[in-house]
Design a protein around this nucleic acid. Structure first.
Lengths: 131, 131
DNA sequence: TAGATTATTGCATTCTTTTTTCAAATCCTT
DNA sequence: AAGGATTTGAAAAAAGAATGCAATAATCTA
């Protein structure tokens, strides 16, 4: 993969810690440098296929991109939609358990948790609301 | 929700045991009765919003529909793409574990396993190949 | 059961997200 | 700096999904 100013800018924004931006959101940030949406998609696709980043499908209506290619899970806040990373250790033993339940060859899994992010949780308690 | 011949046909095909068809696949089957693709989408959407069926996003590039609205998980075969249901019990304790790991309020999760379905597993062994 | 009422349908269109096309620009090697 | 390979921007196309509308079908009411 050849370097390009565009790819650097895309990585720079997309990689801001904790973010899981969509292609649109990334484009929103980098279009001020004249970077086209197609270029954003192309670069993200290339980075995904080289294992530099990961694509998260099924969380939002559009694909989200995760700058952390190491195994981990996610939690989606049911109130604000924010995505929190969950360490891989939270799923320890799940594969073995599933194998013992169905006797098939399972080698990995993807988990999406649903709950309340810290911010919404704190906010709700402060307001006296329990949702 | 009012009855309709179309919805019955859609349910009938989509509900064939073990299937997790996409809207396109369902339409492919029912269009011989003159049912339009838009009608398939509308009906699926309605059934999902009434909790009769579930929509599976994140497995395929297009949404798949699951006739079993009760909680359970799925395994996608890495060889043939077939989707196998995995009982909810396979994920027992995962929520509690995740909570203890990150201290957030988590109330549900969706798990997609990846592995080999029984058919592919048997086929590979017969052929002497280990993939 | 006739007529009114309401929901659903088919078709075509629209919308959203993603991919592709292609000439021009950029990057890298030498 | 030249040359070939890759990447880009802009626009068009593709793919998946949702929607508006007039016509049709299902249900309700009397």
């Amino acid at each position: 993969m050849k370097n390009s100013r565009q790819r650097e800018l895309i990585l720079e924004y997309a990689g801001k810690s904790g973010l899981h931006p969509s292609a649109e959101e990334i484009h929103e940030e980098v279009k001020k440098y004249g970077i086209a949406l197609g270029t954003v998609y192309r670069n993200l696709g290339k980075m995904v296929s080289e294992g530099l980043i990961k694509k998260l499908e099924g969380i939002s209506s559009s694909a989200l991109y995760d700058m952390n290619p190491l195994p981990h899970y996610h939690m989606v806040c049911r109130q604000c939609g924010f995505i929190t990373d969950i360490p891989e250790s939270a799923g320890e033993g799940i594969i073995e358990k599933a194998i013992s339940h169905i006797g098939a060859e399972i080698d990995s899994c993807n988990i999406v948790f649903h709950g309340l992010c810290k911010k919404c949780s704190a906010h709700n308690k402060k307001g006296g609301k329990i949702l």
